[in-house]
Amino acid sequence: MPARRPVRWHIAVFLAPAVLVYTAIMIVPLFGTLNLALYNREGDARVFVGLANFATLFGDPRWSASFWNALGNNAWFFLIHMLVQNPIGILLAALLSSPRLRMAAFYRTAIFIPTILSFVIVGFVWKLILSPIWGIAPGMLGAVSLKGLFAPWLGQEGAALTTLALVSVWQFVGIPMMLIYAALLSIPDEVMEAAEMDGITGWSRFRRIQLPLILPSIGIISILTFVGNFNAFDLIYVAQGALAGPNFATDILGTFLYRTFFGFQLQLGDPHMGAAIATAMFLIILAGVCLYLFGIQTRLRRYQF
């Protein structure tokens, strides 16, 4: 009888450290919090209420209006990132990766700098630049005699969210740029040279040779953008405060969760409703990621060199 295959202990050794730390510090506390969503406070006691908190969140007009407002704003925030941040990132990466480009290292380093700044700095500096009082932006528009175009964008209900989304694009465009750049560099020179032999250069080389090869990376940056945007909180918080003004025009799920969970001004924090919102966010993100993993990623072709 042939012996059974020996237990492959090395698999466990490779997996153990990551799985242990991750489970103890992240998963267990997270499910502890999600569990809170099923309880509520009555007097001093914590009682199990099942899905009643979700019925309140979607049924009670005071809660559901805020929720749908935050979700809609969040979707717009994400859309701007997909339409502005990722195409600019891919364009910059494609330009940077062209051979014999001088100063490529300088550009790459400089363009990534906003990404390393903390939200504390980014929120503060853009508020200063866009401020109608200190006025770097109105002054600069005035210098090209377009001063009429200036408006206090961060204070306008119609423009505040888009403005903040563009600030976020400004800050994070370095991430898709770096990922795509690394993917473009990993394409072997022989492939590019073969294309050049066949007379495929410039735009058509990018579209027909490079683009298919970096599609998996574009998939990754899309899903990272989605997850990052639906978890976003800090920029809105440092620029507009927990109330996400003006008149909740910049409220996204993260700030809505924060206000509910920790309270603001005169309203007390409600950990149970907060946990219900957190669970809703979790399900939204889970749906998006599943769509990517099963609908898109499995159809991408991978090439081994």
């Binding site: 492959r8 997270l30 502890g32 990272l224």
Partner: peptide, 29 residues
């Protein structure tokens, strides 16, 4: 190995959920 896909999904779960949601329990820990 058995459970490979499941383990991958389990570890990927953390990309989607902000660890901040577990703050209260982390503080207790």
């Amino acid at each position: 190995f058995r459970g490979n896909l499941l383990m991958g999904l389990y570890l990927a779960l953390g990309i989607m959920i902000p660890i901040r949601l577990g703050t209260v329990a982390i503080l207790d820990l």
